[in-house]
Amino acid sequence: MQRNRLVFLTLALASVHALTACAAAPDNNPAMATAATPTSPSQTAVHTSVPDESALPMMVVSKSASCGCCHLWVEHMQKAGFTVEVVNTEDLNPIKERVGVPYRKGSCHTAEVGGYFVEGHVPADDIKRLLAERPDAKGLVVPGMPAGSPGMELPDGRVQPYVVELVANDGTTSEFSRHGD
Rank of each mutant, 00 (worst) to 15 (best):
A55M: 10
V86P: 01
D52L: 06
V74H: 01
H17N: 13
S42H: 13
Y116T: 08
P102F: 00
V74T: 04
E75I: 07
F117L: 04
P26I: 05
L72Q: 14
A31M: 08
V122G: 05
A33W: 01
P41F: 02
A36D: 03
Y103N: 11
H71F: 14
Q43M: 13
Q43I: 02
N88H: 12
V122D: 02
R98L: 11
P38Q: 09
N29E: 15
N28Q: 10
C69K: 01
G120P: 02
T110A: 05
K96F: 00
P57N: 11
V113M: 04
S54M: 12
M58S: 13
G120D: 04
V87T: 10
E97R: 11
H71V: 04
A55S: 14
L56Q: 12
T83C: 05
V122Q: 03
P102D: 00
S54V: 13
S107W: 02
V99D: 03
P41Q: 06
C108L: 06
C108D: 07
L19T: 13
G68K: 07
N88G: 10
S54P: 06
A31W: 04
C69G: 01
P38I: 05
L56H: 07
C22G: 11
V87N: 13
M77F: 07
P102C: 01
C69L: 07
A21N: 08
W73I: 13
N93A: 15
H71T: 11
Q43F: 01
V87G: 08
V50F: 05
H71R: 14
E75N: 14
V16G: 09
Y116P: 05
T37V: 14
T44N: 11
G115P: 13
M59R: 03
P38V: 11
Q78S: 08
G100H: 00
V122A: 08
A33T: 06
P123A: 12
S54N: 15
R98I: 02
A24T: 10
V118Y: 01
D125L: 12
D52W: 02
F82R: 03
G81F: 06
S42M: 04
P57G: 07
A25I: 09
H121Q: 10
V84G: 08
S49L: 02
M77N: 06
N88T: 11
G120Q: 04
G120S: 08
G81N: 03
F82C: 03
T20A: 09
D91Y: 01
T48F: 00
C22I: 12
T110V: 06
K63V: 05
F82L: 02
D52H: 12
M59D: 07
V61P: 04
G68T: 06
N28C: 09
E97H: 07
E90Q: 13
E53T: 10
H76R: 11
A18F: 08
K79G: 09
A31I: 05
C22V: 13
P26A: 09
N29D: 15
V60N: 10
L56V: 03
H76K: 10
H76N: 15
A36Y: 05
S64E: 15
V86W: 03
G81H: 02
S49E: 04
R98P: 00
S62F: 06
